[in-house]
Amino acid sequence: MASHAFRDTRFPLLHGAGAMPAVGFGTLFRDLSVTTEAITAALDAGFRHFDCAERYRNEAQVGVAFREAMDLWKVRREELFITTKLWNTNHRPERVLPAFEASLRRLQVDYVDSYLIHTPFAFQPGEEQDPRDEQGRVIYDTGVTLLDTWRALEQLVDSGRCRSIGLSDVSLPALQAIVAEARIKPAVVQIEAHPYLPEWEMVEFCRQHGIVVLAFAPLGHAMEPNVLEEPVLTEIAQRLGRTPAQVALAWSVQRGVAFLTTSTSPAHMRENFALEPLPESAMDEIRERIETRVRFNSVVETGVPGFIPRKK
């Protein structure tokens, strides 16, 4: 398989909702002021799949980059795969459509290719994204179920402005419950996944049900233990004349998992986009020889995003 064909891999979505580019770009930045410039650079590097969220508070800046690129004829809307996400404070069904429409306005698009429930945890509804009580504890909303919220997302698909729907930061049991009850099945599941957290059981369940798995932190988010310093990956990279990042990302695509990387460095963007397939022997090595297992983000347990500082 030629490298250009490999990095342009697309995974078809359920219900004829198109296909997701396996190589994606995340839009969460510590410094929101870099957003428009970074998205523009990512478009120039070749990325066409972008993952956004109202929680990131920068959809408007992402939208500026999209609009400028389309106005300059650098890219057509139909070439882009745009995902955004419903935040925890908008889980009540009556809040879903207004939140969705607000994201469309900020992104300056008429539709999105995928709309995800950011986490399965409903927070107290309101404008405060991180509602806390006097003791600093998250205030959850017990008046709505995940299935209630899912039903509202199904209506967005019916409207034609949302091509596909899915879940993020979800456990396998919660996903199974939605799959069992949904009228429109999840097309996408976004989870933390990398060689230290391969999530084989989730990947296999999704494969059986035609659901695309989308990995965030596919390189470990520079946390300790550092995925990119894993000896198995560095050995393979040296042998093949590639970087450990390119090995880890190719491994993801080759096992059928799309991924998101985020960078403000055009050089890193180009590195993460320039992928070639791995020999099957390397795929076997990664699966059989890497024994470290660690989750870097606790969001799946609480609904509160946050990478956990660790030491080796």
Rank of each mutant, 00 (worst) to 15 (best):
M1I: 01
F6M: 11
G16C: 00
A17F: 02
V23P: 02
G24N: 03
D31N: 13
L32V: 15
T40S: 07
T40C: 05
F47C: 02
D51E: 10
V64R: 09
E68R: 14
W73D: 08
W73T: 08
E79D: 13
I82N: 10
R92E: 08
R92I: 15
E94D: 08
L97Q: 08
E101C: 08
L107G: 15
Q108F: 05
D113M: 03
D113A: 04
H118G: 04
T119R: 01
T119D: 06
F123C: 01
P125I: 07
E127M: 12
P131Q: 02
V138E: 00
V138I: 01
T142K: 11
G143T: 12
T145S: 14
L156C: 04
V157I: 14
C162I: 13
G166T: 07
V170N: 08
V170L: 06
R183Y: 00
V188K: 01
P195G: 03
V212R: 07
L219V: 11
E224N: 14
L233Y: 06
T234D: 04
L240V: 04
V247E: 00
W251Q: 05
V257S: 09
T262S: 14
T264N: 11
S265P: 10
R270E: 15
N272M: 07
I290Q: 04
N297I: 12
V299H: 12
E301T: 03
G303K: 09
I308C: 11
